Amino acid sequence: MTDNEKQIRTLIERWATAVHKGDLEAVLVDHADDIVMFDVPPPHDGVRGVDAYRETWPPFFEWQAQGAAFEILSLDVTAGTDVAFAHALLRCGTPKELTDHPETRLRLSVGLRKEQGRWVVAHEHHSFADTTVVGDGA
């Protein structure tokens, strides 16, 4: 593993810990001012800019206060000298949701770039697989 990959892994793990703790300032610390995030809830065209990104977190923290989990299960990082990407699978759900559907995973994709010698998240995408049952074909 390269030094850049280690730095990015640490950054993402620190971010996930901050999310789990509901520490908004620590969630924001390594994000670019012009971040673009596509999230599970609307808006469908995503949020742009760190101020809009900041506004998405309080409702999530309220939901998470029900005892929800937010933990990285797997994380893969690919890094060049000034751009990188990572993808991860996380356990994310309330105890009941995870008991009822233990296979559910939050999918995370992150695009990073180096700014003034440090890695920052420029793009973040969260999603769940669509589990909608479509008709039985009859």
Rank of each mutant, 00 (worst) to 15 (best):
L112I: 05
D100S: 12
H87C: 03
F60T: 11
D30W: 00
V120H: 00
P42I: 02
N4A: 15
P41D: 13
R105I: 02
W57M: 06
K96E: 15
Q116V: 04
L106R: 00
G46H: 13
S109Q: 06
N4M: 06
L75E: 10
Y53V: 03
F38G: 02
D3W: 00
F38S: 09
H44I: 13
A68D: 08
K114F: 00
V83W: 00
G117F: 08
H126C: 04
W119R: 06
L28K: 07
H20I: 00
V77P: 08
G137W: 03
M1H: 13
E25P: 03
V19K: 08
T131H: 05
E71V: 06
V29G: 02
P41F: 14
V29Q: 15
R118G: 01
L106E: 00
G111C: 09
A52R: 10
K21S: 08
R107Y: 02
A18M: 12
T99G: 10
L11S: 07
K96L: 14
R9F: 01
V40E: 14
A16G: 15
P58L: 09
V50N: 04
I72A: 14
K6L: 12
H126M: 08
G22W: 06
R54Q: 09
A84D: 03
E124K: 08
D45I: 14
T81Q: 12
A65K: 14
P59K: 06
E71D: 09
W57I: 08
T17C: 11
P58H: 10
R14W: 01
D39Y: 11
H125R: 06
T2R: 03
D100T: 12
A84H: 05
G22K: 09
V29K: 15
V50D: 01
D45G: 15
E124M: 05
A129E: 05
Y53Q: 05
K21V: 00
A129Q: 08
A84R: 01
V27T: 13
F60R: 15
T78L: 05
G46Q: 13
P42W: 04
Q7H: 06
V134Y: 03
R54Y: 11
L112Y: 05
F60D: 11
H125T: 04
T131S: 08
V19N: 05
V27H: 05
H87T: 07
P59W: 04
V121N: 04
M1Y: 09
G137C: 02
H87Q: 10
V83H: 05
T56M: 15
G49R: 11
L11H: 12
H31G: 00
G93R: 01
G135W: 06
V50G: 02
D34T: 13
V121D: 04
H87W: 05
V27D: 04
W15H: 15
A68V: 07
T81D: 15
P95H: 08
T104L: 11
T56Q: 12
D30I: 00
A68W: 07
W63V: 08
D82V: 11
V47Q: 07
G80Y: 10
V110E: 07
V77S: 12
E97S: 10
W63D: 06
P59T: 07
V133H: 02
A122G: 11
L98I: 10
T10L: 11
A68I: 02
